[in-house]
Design a protein around this nucleic acid. Sequence first.
DNA 1: CGAGGCCTTGACCGCGGTCAATGCCCGTGG
DNA 2: CCACGGGCATTGACCGCGGTCAAGGCCTCG
Lengths: 191, 191
Amino acid sequence: MVPSVHPIFNYFDRIYRVCPAARAALNELLGKERYTKNELIQQTGNSCRTVYFVSSGIARIFFYKDGEDITEHFAFAGDVIVRAESLFTGEPTPKGIQALQEVELLAIDAVKLFALYDTHHDVERLFRLIFEQEYVAAIKRVESLQLQHATERYLDLVQTTDLINQIPLRYIASYLGITQVSLSRIRAGLR
Amino acid sequence: MVPSVHPIFNYFDRIYRVCPAARAALNELLGKERYTKNELIQQTGNSCRTVYFVSSGIARIFFYKDGEDITEHFAFAGDVIVRAESLFTGEPTPKGIQALQEVELLAIDAVKLFALYDTHHDVERLFRLIFEQEYVAAIKRVESLQLQHATERYLDLVQTTDLINQIPLRYIASYLGITQVSLSRIRAGLR
DNA sequence: CGAGGCCTTGACCGCGGTCAATGCCCGTGG
DNA sequence: CCACGGGCATTGACCGCGGTCAAGGCCTCG
């Protein structure tokens, strides 16, 4: 009897196919979590000690700046979600993670994961490749914030996925770096 | 006779101390390059196949958007400099690297480096940690572009290092996402 | 000494900000 | 079942930051 392996390996295998021993060890760390709409997945102010993958639903990373709720990142089904500035430094982060809908997550304890890096080189490689992709995505986001107008950024965002339409405008506005009022006008101007 | 080891290992060791075999193998890949002021280090439009560390001087990553010269990144002594969106995807990039002063670089062939990842786990770990730091830096930059005014971004930039004062204003302006005219006014307003 | 590169400054404009009023949707309680 | 209230989006009035275009000053270098 082969123990059942989590479907996330369909995704992992496309990035890097780890050896059977590594696969078994990694499989042990996979946990499933469910959150209801608007529920907090991770508190603001703590340290990031969990790597999540979104199985279904939408989540966001957010924080407060001068009392305002700012969205830093959206994550949809298939996306990894971590507060990297904490995960990779050990520092606590002002950012939290929240479910924007009923959400199912795959959760991996980061301390155990990093321990696996020592015993299973393949696991370190897999996650190195995953986070390299995230790094590249962050650079793309820098480019868009540095060079594009809010209208262009909005258009780019809506065409990545139509799930965007399920997200409240105020969250999208702060993600774009503008106010909700301005975003409302931008949308009005596009009609 | 121990073969001489490059001083960059003072920097590497603070991040992760690789075993002697890995150190020797990595040491083999280290090359020194010199460029004069304004010289191109990497052409725009090619693929990133080199990891650089700045030994002395200042370099920048730049590209052209609608005919305009845009600075994406500055690198000073001690900084790593790569065009990550190409290095980690294999895709060519519209970005180039240029010396802003007389520059000395440590250059590492990326193909050979990645090959070392297979034979020396330690090397993969070292560079994983280096690029994780760069990823965190990219996230910080996203935050500043998303939330801060140009004046704040400028103030933050000048207080990272006073070497900023050696960089032409127009390069700084595009890095901040504004025009050189606006940056000139911002500076005037600070006096 | 003239030319060109770079920074500054003025005039003007539009995008996006703030503040506030209004409209719309929906959940809850009388 | 309707009335009310609260949360969210839209819209108007107004303003300021940063954009464009263009002129002028300053420095460097041939």
